[in-house]
Simulated scan of single mutants.
Amino acid sequence: ASDAESFVMSVEVAMRWGTPAVATEFPHGPAEIINDGVDGRLVPMGDRQALAAALGDLITDEPDRHRMGEAARDAARRFDPAHVAHVYEELFGDLAATRSARAWQRRKARWRNRAGRALRRLRH
């Protein structure tokens, strides 16, 4: 039940073991890992009752816990090292392929800004 972790390793590890995780929902955190009600549960930050209820629900509802656990195991595959490495390779390839075009766009924007500043100085 954190309020400041971006990628919660304990959630990813639990999912790999087929355990649905319960975590607090906050920007750039477990909500990007857990699909609420499908492979785990998300509760509002600071809501102790919601956290306790979500944990209690998973403890008492064995069929739902097993269903979410299987979904969690499947969802955790997106964090497999080979998959993550492939995603980074694609990203770096795309960045390398568009490097000169992006540099050209930055130069054009700088020239436009300088020309705009020069015109404004001439008008005043």
Results as ranks from 00 to 15, higher is better:
E12G: 07
H124M: 08
P30A: 15
A76P: 00
A71T: 01
G93C: 03
F7C: 13
P30T: 08
A118N: 10
A75V: 01
D57A: 13
H83K: 13
A118W: 14
L119I: 10
R78G: 00
D39Q: 02
G116E: 11
W17H: 14
E5S: 05
H124E: 13
S100Q: 15
A1S: 14
P20T: 03
A101F: 03
H28S: 14
R73E: 09
Q105T: 09
H28E: 10
V87K: 11
V38A: 11
A71G: 03
D64Q: 13
F79V: 07
P30E: 02
E5W: 02
F7N: 09
E90F: 07
R73Y: 10
R114C: 05
T60S: 13
R77C: 05
A21E: 01
S6T: 13
E12M: 14
A71S: 04
R73N: 06
A85Y: 00
S6N: 13
E25Y: 06
P30V: 04
V22A: 02
T19W: 07
V11R: 01
P27D: 05
A109W: 10
A96E: 12
P20E: 04
E32K: 06
D64L: 15
D36S: 11
D57R: 14
G18Y: 10
F92T: 12
R102D: 04
G46D: 03
L95H: 07
R123W: 05
E12Q: 13
H86Q: 15
G93E: 01
R123Y: 01
A23V: 04
T60K: 14
F92Y: 14
D39Y: 05
A54I: 03
A85T: 03
R67L: 13
A31V: 13
L95G: 07
F79I: 06
A96V: 10
P63I: 00
Q105E: 15
D39H: 03
D80F: 07
D61Q: 09
P30Q: 05
A82L: 10
R120W: 03
A4L: 10
P20D: 02
A85G: 02
V43F: 04
L122D: 06
S6L: 06
